[in-house]
Computed example of a mutant assay.
Amino acid sequence: AIVLLASFITNSIIDFTNAPLAGFVFQIVIITFILLLFGEIMPKVLATNKPLSFARLVAFPIHTLIRLLKPLNSILISSTSRIGKRFAPRKNISMDELSDALDITTDGITEEKKILHGIVNFGNIMVSEIMKPRIDVVAVEDDTSFSDLKKIVVESGYSRIPVFQNSFDGVKGILYVKDLIPFIEKDNSFRWQNLIRSPYFVPESKKINDLLAEFQQKRIHMAIVVDEYGGKNGIITLEDILEEIVGEISDESDDDVQLYSKIDNLNYLFEGKVQLNDFCKVVSCDDDIFDDIRGDAETLAGLILEITGQIPTKNELVRHKNFNFTIDAVDNKRIKRIKVQIIPTNDDGSKK
């Protein structure tokens, strides 16, 4: 701006119409050199050699100019800011970009990073990935005697228990243990079935962030998970959802059931029913590493069945990518335990 202003003043004083080359040399080369010498180089040299004296010399003029030009400066800054907000394109950060940003942070905030990763991935997790499968659900049949019901409640330690008729596919409702407390001294003829509350059904494909909002709106803590044919696949609780953010939540009533044991850094022993989502967290691999083969599988045992197409035999070895799965325990119905060996890979993805 100063160069342009100096060129304008020079053209007003001196006419270079007949000597355009001389005008170019004078206006661009000579004026630029003078401005750099007296406006950039000389002040820096003086300020370096005599900083205190130079500061005293220029402090008052600079302070005066700042006060004089403050109104104009404020107008220019505010107008520029408004124009920038109005016309500047908004850049939306994708979840993948945010996840990558978390991966390159320092290792000093491991726990905080896990929580942030849980928040980032929260909207991508479906109910079927974290639900408790029906085979592991503690439920009671509607014709159970009151004495037997009390035993089940005490042994399970749960505060909410599904009630079904004939089979789990015939879920009739949820029994809240707190509703039983006023009638705990009743005899075996007590009709506890009158205390059953209506169940809340959710599809297995629902995202857990949407389900969390529904739990908050309806003020409930448990839902029955159904498939596309209406079959009951299991249950999901508010605790299951929150654990995806903050990690495992344990209380005094929880049994210390280990779904895996770590042999060393590259070898593990997993229960077949462990969720693939939890498996990936334990072995520190990407959540989508099995997307090309998992199909509808949500557990490690289900993944093995997808790979083999049949129930494997004991000690059978199944290889996939950089994992070696060895069947440790199996029966005619399901895979119970699996040994997992992780094969180290190079940066290009090839096995070492």
Rank of each mutant, 00 (worst) to 15 (best):
L35Y: 03
K44M: 14
P51A: 10
K44V: 14
L52G: 05
S53P: 04
F33R: 00
S53L: 13
L36K: 03
L35S: 05
T48C: 13
I41C: 12
E40L: 07
A19L: 12
N49E: 10
F33Y: 00
P43T: 11
F26S: 04
A22G: 10
I28K: 03
I34Q: 12
F38K: 03
G39P: 04
M42H: 02
I41G: 07
K44Y: 05
L37S: 15
K50P: 01
F54N: 05
F33P: 00
E40T: 05
K44W: 05
L21R: 00
S53R: 11
N18E: 14
T48V: 10
G39A: 07
A22W: 09
V45M: 11
V45D: 02
S53C: 10
G39K: 11
A19S: 11
A19R: 06
L46R: 04
P51N: 07
G23C: 07
G23I: 05
F24M: 13
L35V: 09
T48F: 15
K50S: 11
G23P: 15
V45S: 03
F54G: 00
G23R: 02
Q27C: 12
V25A: 06
L21F: 01
F24K: 09
I31G: 00
L52T: 09
P51M: 10
N49H: 10
L46W: 04
S53E: 12
E40C: 07
F54L: 06
F24W: 14
V45T: 07
L36S: 08
Q27M: 14
A47P: 00
A19C: 07
G39S: 07
T32W: 03
S53F: 11
L36F: 15
G39T: 08
P20N: 02
P51I: 12
P20Q: 03
V45N: 05
G23S: 04
F54D: 00
T48M: 14
G23H: 01
A19M: 09
M42C: 11
L36P: 01
N18H: 13
E40W: 01
I41R: 05
V29C: 10
I31L: 08
F38H: 04
F24A: 12
P20I: 08
L52E: 04
L36I: 13
N18W: 07
I30S: 00
E40G: 07
V29T: 11
I34E: 10
T32H: 04
M42S: 10
P51F: 11
K50M: 08
I41S: 06
I30Y: 02
V29E: 02
S53A: 15
P51V: 13
L21E: 00
M42E: 04
M42Q: 06
G39W: 15
V25P: 08
I31W: 10
P43G: 10
T48E: 10
E40D: 04
E40Y: 01
P43H: 14
K50G: 08
I34C: 13
L35G: 09
M42D: 03
P20E: 10
L21Y: 01
I34L: 15
I34V: 15
L37W: 11
P51G: 07
V25D: 00
P20F: 09
V29N: 03
N49P: 01
T32Q: 04
I28V: 12
L37H: 13
A22C: 08
L35K: 09
L36Y: 08
